[in-house]
Simulated assay, not measured.
Amino acid sequence: MPAIKVMIVDDSAVVRQVLSATLDEDVGIEVIGAAVDPVFALEKMKAQWPDVIVLDVEMPRMDGITFLRRIMADRPTPVVICSTLTEKGSETALQALSAGAVCVVTKPKVGLKQFLHDCSDDLISAVKAAARSNVRRLVPSAPAPSAVAPKLSADAILPAGSAMAQTTETVVAIGTSTGGTQALESVLRALPRVSPGIVVVQHMPEKFTGAFAQRLDGLCEVEVREARHGDRVMPGRVLIAPGGRHMLLKRSGAQYVVDVIDGPPVSRHRPSVDVLFRSAARFAGRNAVGVIMTGMGDDGARGLKEMHDAGAWTVAQDEASCVVYGMPKEAVKLGGVDKVLPLTDIPAAILGRISRRS
């Protein structure tokens, strides 16, 4: 296989040097150039176009977001954002994801050189994941999984059990990862205010999910917010699991609520789609609809199979519309999917299923 050609665009000489050295250590990656800003980068890229761009946000002459939008409009190319992000900056990161970035790697303000050395495996994994993505499938407008930590199942958070008795209220559980910020926006913006209660796990780091939910809330008819422990799941409301914590669906009488808890990563993620889906299988059963969308790896595949086996109706995004056909592919392989649909058909399918049940 040919090496992945990478262009680094960062105004810090230290970052360019360390990133170049780090990525070049992997035989599957070749750094073909580094530039102090997007203007220089564009000149270099005329001679040889990269497979992946590693991009800072704050740079002279042209900022990274503007450059990203230009690239995605003219010649879509996988982009990994590598930037120092503060509370304010996390909104910038969401803009980058919305504009087409595959993932975001957060740089600290201090100890930068040591951080880049310590996180070399994560950076390499992010570049390789980006190279496998199909950015042309992004809808116009997560840290990389650990290779060292043990891969725990949902048993670490919630033991498997039988589904509770059926009620009349339906809940939709959605799980997604790479490419999911755009996919979720597409689905949620298409839903009317009168929609079933929805619970979502999107693989994102801490401090990102609150800003992400706030952004979606301003774009959608449904209410979207970052979940808090004990929040009620109700029609017209979408609850997004906070980064760094698991979210479980529970029953309180005839109502659904969410538990937001700490715990070890499951399927190498926290929040984990497998945890949410298992809880939906156990506490909603036939009352649930499960949707698994674009993402790398297999988080959610087993949980969706459990939902399917408990009587829930399950949907997977099709390969043609996925940025990364990983999670849906694994769910299909396990036999846990009732329907495979393109992204644009998922909102109508959810609403159609709910109307048939009512």
Rank of each mutant, 00 (worst) to 15 (best):
A3E: 15
A3N: 14
A3C: 14
A3F: 13
V6W: 01
R16D: 09
Q17I: 11
S20L: 07
E30G: 14
E30S: 15
L42D: 14
K44T: 03
Q48T: 10
V57Q: 13
P60W: 06
P60V: 14
M62G: 14
R70K: 15
P78H: 08
I81Q: 09
T84L: 13
S90D: 10
L97E: 04
A101W: 04
V104E: 02
V105E: 11
T106K: 11
V110T: 11
D118K: 08
L123K: 07
A126L: 01
A130H: 00
V135C: 08
S141F: 14
A142G: 12
P159L: 10
M164I: 10
A173N: 06
T176E: 06
G180V: 04
T181M: 01
A190L: 03
L191Y: 03
R193F: 13
V194T: 15
P196H: 04
P196F: 06
H203C: 01
P205N: 05
A211S: 12
E223P: 06
R225S: 03
G230M: 06
V233K: 02
G236V: 08
L239N: 01
A254K: 15
Q255S: 14
Y256K: 06
D259A: 03
V260K: 05
G263Q: 08
S267P: 13
H269Q: 07
V273L: 04
L276S: 03
R282A: 13
G290E: 13
G295S: 00
M296A: 02
D298P: 00
A301K: 12
M307R: 10
H308E: 12
A312C: 12
W313G: 09
A316S: 12
E319Y: 09
V323I: 07
Y325Q: 00
G336H: 08
D345Y: 15
G352S: 09
R353L: 13
